[in-house]
Each structure stands twice: as C-alpha cells, then as structure tokens.
Design a protein around this nucleic acid. Structure first.
Lengths: 219, 219
DNA sequence: CTCGGTTTGTTCCCGCGTTCACAAACTCTT
DNA sequence: AAGAGTTTGTGAACGCGGGAACAAACCGAG
C-alpha cells in the first residue's frame, strides 16, 4: 500500500505515537492536532507531521487528526493488526520479567513458548507457560510460525542461541544479552543493552559535574 | 590535546568497545588492530578509528592499540573509574531482574537502594537488599550522593517518581516505564522501551514477508 | 641508515534526519 | 458566499554521522 520506504528513524518513533494515541483515546479525545500529539510523544510537531506524512495523508488541514483512525493506520503500518508469536529463550531473572511483561501481550505479541537450556527447569510454570527444553526450538518455531525470537540468556550462550534461532527460521531477534551477535544477511537484530544505557548516562553525568573539559588528571 | 565534545553516536558505542576490549583481555590479547576490535564490536574499522580519535591518540601506527591501556582510557572517559551509586524504584518483575543484573554491579554501578511504593513489600529481601519505602528516596539520595535513578514502575506512576527523583537531586534517569517523561532542563532521561523494540522488529518482519523491494538490514 | 610493510589518524564527500517556513486546504462566522 | 483563522503537508536549508581513501608515523630487516 505504501509505495515509499519509511525512514528508519520514523519507524522507531511510530510505537511512541501509538502509545500517545492510546492515552488520548482513554481520555475520550476524538481528534488532536499535531502539536498536542507531538507534545504527548515528546517530539517536535514538525517532526511528527513529517513522520506521519510518510504513512499517507491521514490528517485534515484546519482540524487535525482523528485519533482512532490514525491509531489504526499506524497499527496497520507497523503490522500490529496481525498476530506475532514470540519465543523467549533464557528464563533467568530477565526472561522471567519479560514473560510477565504485559506490554508485549497487549500489543499483538503472543509469547508461545519459554525455553531454557537448563533442563532441570523444564516444566516449571512461568507466566502461565511451562518452561520447555531448548531442543524443542525448531519444532515450536515451525508449529506456530514464529518469526521473532527474544534472547535473555547470559552473554556466553547468546551467539549459539542466535545460530539455532536462525537455523530454525527466525528472522528477527531481540537481544538482551550483552554481546554482539553475528547473523547472516536478512536477519534483523535489535540489541537492548541495559549496562550500556547506564554507562551513557554516567558519561553525561560526569560531564555535568565538571564544568570545564579537563583531562590529564590521573589518579 | 582535544577536549572537544564527543559526538553522541560515539558515546553510545564506547560501552560496546569496552566490552570487546574486556573479551580480548580475557583471551590474553595484549594488542589489537582497529580491524580486530571493530569486528569484535560489530562496526566498521574506519568508524572505530574515528570514534577513538575523539578521545585522543591512544594507538600506535603500524602496531595497533594496547588493549589494557585503551580499556582504561575509555573507562576513564565514560567515568567508570569512579563509583556510581544507583537507586531502583519499582520492584516488580523488571525491577527484580534489574536488581539482580550483574552487568550493573560489574561496571562501577552500585545499587544502594530498592524502593517501592507498595509499603507491604518493605523489608522484603531482593538481591541482598531490603526493599525500602519510596518516601525514603530523598534521604537516600542525599546520604549516598546518588546521581542516577532507575524507574521500573508501571507507566502510571513513572512521571510522579521522576518528579520526586528530580526534586531529590537526581539528574540522570533510566526509564523502563512505557511512557514519555517530562523533566526540567539539565536532567537526562534515557528510555528503554521493550515493547517498542518488538514493534520495530515486527515492522521489518512484515516488510520482509511482503513482495515489495527488500530493503536494508539493521545488523 | 634506509627502505618496505603495516596501521593509525584525518580529510573529504555523501546521504540521512531535523527543523524552519510557507503554501494548500479545511472550518466557521458573518 | 467570502474572508478570517487554523492546521496539515512539504520544499529547502542545514548539521551530523558514516564510509572511503590517503598521508603520517611506526617497526623491522638488511
């Protein structure tokens, strides 16, 4: 339907707009201007308008956007109108939290299986699902048509898990393990690095503390 | 020699380089070329060299980089040579996982307190720390000199928590709640949005499935 | 000491993303 | 119906980051 490709930066913001629209909808707001929506999403209004213009002309000049209609259009563009079965591998503390995270299930993402390499945990009940053996990955992917895999294992195991995922047919991976994954062409990997985020904050915090940039002072 | 500001994109990659250097060090590698380090970090070697050049001239032409020396320089630049006390607010599934996450403590980040608004949970032991009441935030921040706060509450509570954090003197916030935070000038917020990441993957996955021109892969 | 091989640091260029500013288009009032 | 007031969609300018290519610098051999 959309002939032109949507810029990557815009795609990354669409989920934010979607959340803002949901908030407006809960407050019974029927229409909104680009200014309102932009402020709810924490971005510039010009940027918002340009982002939305990549999807099509869904607004009305002099009026604004129909919240319900725009929400549907963005959902459809992202692909949330369809069902996305997801597999989570590595049910440690983080995997446990992800399995229970309501933000996934409420957005069209359905966790169909929790896998762990530690077979002593097989059968344990987490978030209403039984933990299954990692060896069942290929069968589960095939059975449910899983396209998205989540890695929440320790760093040492992540590459191997990714390899098995790719071999099983998964083409999109969300990686929480603090390691760079090597995957073949055509496979998307998004990395969420908790430690890096803190380090980036620390860098800026350090900069705030010292008014002038100074180096050479070594302990 | 060049105390110029480091580009934001470079800052975001420094933690990745740091991890790669740690891996090399564990394998008893003394020196490495930009090519080696770049491949370990999953980036282009030209990009790596340009990034490092912003810190200073820490390499030797014809030889490469001293792993240990470079690791120290990056650590110092990010500010990991000092101690960063951290407070985590919201000890649900995610907060629990964060409190136990070893990637924090092993990088100079020290979790000094876990807070939760639900006072029935006060005193509960998580990751060796007792959960304390949210009302103690200001005192804890003042006592330990906390500059970084982590929000792992539900979305509805996040803004209020952020406001209290800012009032208590926290100037860097890592936000896991799926909502945009409004903070005054001078306060940094980094957002980690688990649901958005999945949605971005879904968008690309949908694109792969459709017969349209297969476009770039984000690796 | 000189020369060849190697690798860094840097310069130049290009493409993407952001922002401004404005024309186009719609509503409402008179 | 026409004009005033809004608000969207977009064209253009601008700045930042990425990648290739190259000069500068270092090591080792003879």
């Amino acid at each position: 339907m959309s002939p032109t490709r949507i810029p990557e930066a815009t795609v990354a913001r669409l989920p934010v707009y979607l959340r803002a629209l949901n908030s407006l909808l809960e407050a019974d707001t029927r229409t909104c201007s680009s200014e309102e929506l932009a402020s709810a999403a924490g971005v510039n209004s010009a940027k918002l308008r340009k982002d939305l213009s990549h999807l099509g002309s869904y607004g009305t000049r002099g009026v604004g956007y129909d919240v319900e209609y725009l929400r549907y259009q963005i959902s459809r563009e992202i692909g949330l109108t369809q069902d996305w079965p997801v597999v989570i591998v590595g049910i440690g503390n983080l995997g446990h939290a992800l399995a229970n995270y309501s933000g996934f299930s409420s957005r069209g993402f359905r966790t169909v299986a929790l896998l762990d390499a530690d077979d002593t945990r097989t059968g344990e009940l987490v978030a209403g699902l039984k933990i299954r053996s990692f060896g069942e990955l290929a069968a589960i992917v095939h059975e449910h048509g899983v396209a998205i895999g989540v890695i929440a294992t320790p760093a040492a195991a992540a590459q191997s898990v990714a390899d098995h995922m790719v071999a099983a047919g998964i083409r999109s991976i969300l990686n929480f393990a603090p390691t760079v994954l090597a995957v073949p062409e055509g496979v998307d990997v998004r990395m969420v690095d908790l430690s890096s985020e803190l380090q980036i904050l620390a860098y800026h915090e350090q900069r705030k503390a010292s008014p002038a940039a100074d180096d050479g002072v070594v302990a």
